[in-house]
Design a protein around this nucleic acid. Structure first.
Lengths: 260, 260
DNA sequence: AATGGAAAAATCGTAGACGATTTGTGATGT
DNA sequence: ACATCACAAATCGTCTACGATTTTTCCATT
């Protein structure tokens, strides 16, 4: 039995990067969340829906994404679906196996190690730049995020405070002010979501929250080196939560089975 | 008058990542370099041809890439061309303006700054990992590259020793052993080629070569911090070579004109 | 009953065609 | 003579159809 595509509840904010063109009213069921508006960014809408579904773990690694199914789900032709799938493939969110269908990517243990190493390499540099460049408003915004994070610490629904944590890391990247690095980080964090969905680590929200707080503290003090070091420790702790469960191959193997 | 697509001489090595499927003999002129082999990786061949043409500055920023022209150049349908163009767009090599055609990307001064900052952030971490992980063979290979680099130092043809320099940086990334970071670096170095083609800096090959040598020296000594620092200086020197010419907006403006 | 193979169904890759948007050119009016 | 508007050419976005490959199912055989 195979998993099926669902992705209801498109509860996202992301503003549509302005495009125009009004072609025709929708012909399909028009599901996914927000109303299909322009017609040209239907592509963006579909991408965002799949993307968010992955982040919220409604689409888990190994799930098949048949083109005909997506076509009638979104009421579009295969051309646009294939375009979206190719984009998702380039971002390593889906894997396009020639003549064998598209599936949500399932990072291997080795890939997991590489992803976390790359994220550490990137994010320590990002936090260093952010620590040098931050303004008073930046710190205030980060503190506000930390406060919100504290509120949802005890939320048992994992994707809820996972999104909160992502927002924190993304905000630091925004403070650094380099959209290229932000894009790379976004890509790596998305793949981290896949890893979490695959290996289901026992994340400690309170612990993560404390580490986030220390990072901001160091930034505020202007202690660049310590901010770097703390971010490195934080990311290594995240990876360790995965690595521990990686040894027990039961989950990994089970996932491998319903993949093929 | 617009620039036209040419891209003769596909002098590259890149091995075809094995795909099979033999459909039919080519119907078009079959130009571009190597013979169209399998049929399924025609896509890879076209991508590689454009990619190499950008690196060798045969395709310069602002050059238009009309789909029909590429179709008959490679003897394929628009579908595969659009696929390649979308991939190139994702890597920021070409810009796809809706209903207005594809052009080779022309990084703005602000983007140039971001690209170099991102590359520094990435590559200092890469050289740090490489400095911790290198084997004796890695060092020998790097020394061999340095020797070859020394030979072509006085080659007046810029793309020649530019390719040599790229290979050196890529090899260090290979030593680090993280394909994700290597991919990001490749992307950024490609965009640096665009920048060089746009702003035509007065690069000092001998100076670069000396800096490369110092980096390997520090790696051999196990002096991780100094290797990091030297790589940072090296990349900053590269950027400064651009920045100087950036002030004189004559070149930039001239390029801007033949863009639209 | 289990296994091997063949046919059918499903899915994917590519090509060709049509409609929409943009751009360049030429004629016309001021 | 210059600006403006309309028309034509070019280019792009999308849809539909066909061929190839893969997977699944079913039946015959051991």
């Amino acid at each position: 039995m195979e998993q099926s595509v669902d992705m209801s509840d498109g509860a996202t904010s992301v503003s549509n990067s302005g495009r125009r063109r009004v072609r025709k009213a929708e012909a399909g069921p028009d599901l996914g969340g927000a109303a299909v508006a322009s017609g040209g960014d239907v592509e963006q809408h579909i991408y965002q829906t799949v993307f968010d579904s992955v982040l919220n773990q409604r689409l888990t690694p190994g799930t098949k994404l048949p083109e005909p199914a997506l076509c009638e789900l979104f009421g579009v032709s295969r051309a646009v679906i294939r375009k979206v799938l190719q984009r998702l493939e380039h971002e390593r969110i889906v894997e396009l196996r020639p003549n064998k269908g598209a599936v949500i990517a399932a990072p291997t243990p080795e890939e997991t190690r590489q992803i976390f190493e790359a994220r550490r390499a990137l994010e320590v540099s990002i936090v260093e730049i952010a620590a040098r460049r931050h303004t008073a408003k930046d710190l205030a915004d980060l503190r506000k995020l930390l406060a919100h994070e504290h509120e949802v610490t005890h939320n048992l629904y994992q994707p809820a405070w996972a999104a909160c944590a992502r927002e924190f890391h993304l905000r630091i990247a925004a403070v650094a002010g380099n959209p290229i690095l932000t894009n790379y980080l976004t890509e790596l964090m998305t793949r981290c979501s896949l890893i979490v969905a695959l290996y289901q680590p026992t994340g400690n929200a309170a612990c993560e929250h404390a580490e986030h707080g220390r990072i901001v503290d160091y930034m505020e003090k202007g202690d660049v080196a310590s901010a770097r070091a703390e971010m490195g420790r934080h990311l290594r702790a995240l990876e360790d939560n995965i690595s521990l469960d990686r040894g027990s191959s039961t989950q990994s193997l089970a996932q491998m089975l319903n993949l093929g």
